[in-house]
Computed example of a mutant assay.
Amino acid sequence: MAVARRPGAYVCGIDAAMDVIGGKWKVLILWALHERPCRFGELRRELPGVTEKVLASHLRELEADGVVHREEYDEVPPRVEYSLTPRGVSLNEALAPLGAWGRDHVLAPAREAASAPR
């Protein structure tokens, strides 16, 4: 699948990667799809607060970037499932150290501060 290029030149690889995962919901969509393929409604329930419009838009962008695969089944009623492509799996693997950093440097200190005697 050809990757759609967005306007503007990238300064570096981080800039290009951030273009793919930019936005509040894209990384959370990738995380949810890491577990298993999901239908649209399942994804929406996994991500409380996301609107249908934003979820649909982000899924289309991730599909255009070759990160998410959209499978349509010829059934009545129609069924569509979203899953990660190999590129999406490798992107999740690249994001894993960032998640570990967040757990160690943001979540853990916040938990420690909340449990400290006052």
Rank of each mutant, 00 (worst) to 15 (best):
M18H: 09
H58W: 08
R87K: 15
E72G: 05
K53S: 14
L28R: 15
H58K: 13
R87L: 12
K53W: 06
A56Q: 07
G41C: 01
P109N: 03
E63G: 10
L47T: 00
E93N: 09
R44H: 09
D65V: 02
R111H: 11
T51Q: 05
S83K: 11
R79W: 05
P97D: 02
P48R: 00
R118Y: 10
K26T: 02
P78W: 07
V50W: 06
R118I: 07
E35L: 08
V76A: 14
E52V: 03
A4T: 07
G22E: 03
G23D: 01
L84M: 04
P77D: 12
R111P: 04
R79Q: 15
G99V: 05
A113S: 13
V54Y: 00
A16R: 15
R45S: 00
V67G: 02
N92V: 13
V27S: 10
F40W: 12
A108C: 10
D19T: 04
R39Y: 04
R103I: 08
E46N: 01
C38V: 00
E72N: 08
P109K: 06
E52F: 01
I29L: 05
G22V: 02
G88H: 03
A56W: 06
E93L: 14
G102N: 06
P77I: 12
L95N: 02
E72S: 06
R79A: 14
P97A: 05
R118D: 13
E71Y: 07
R79K: 11
A9L: 14
K24R: 12
W31E: 13
W25I: 00
L30Q: 05
A116T: 08
L30A: 07
A64G: 09
E63W: 04
A116D: 09
A17P: 04
A2M: 11
L33S: 05
T51D: 07
P117K: 06
R36L: 03
P117H: 11
C12D: 15
R45W: 00
K53Q: 13
V68L: 03
V11N: 10
P77M: 11
P37G: 00
S57E: 15
L55S: 08
P109I: 05
A110R: 12
E72P: 02
Y73T: 09
E52P: 04
K26C: 04
A64C: 09
V67K: 06
A2W: 07
V54R: 00
A110Q: 07
E71K: 06
P7M: 08
V80A: 13
V106M: 09
P97R: 03
E46D: 09
E112A: 15
P7R: 02
L98K: 05
A56H: 10
R87I: 04
P97V: 04
V89C: 12
P117S: 13
L47F: 00
E35Q: 13
V67W: 01
L91H: 05
A9R: 15
A32I: 00
R44V: 02
G23P: 02
P7F: 03
L55P: 10
D74L: 15
E42V: 08
L59K: 07
R103A: 14
V50T: 11
S83M: 01
R111E: 15
Y82G: 05
L33T: 02
G99L: 08
R5Y: 07
V89P: 04
G23T: 01
I21H: 03
E61A: 08
I14P: 01
P86T: 06
N92F: 05
E42W: 02
R111D: 11
D74N: 11
P37M: 04
G99W: 11
A94Y: 07
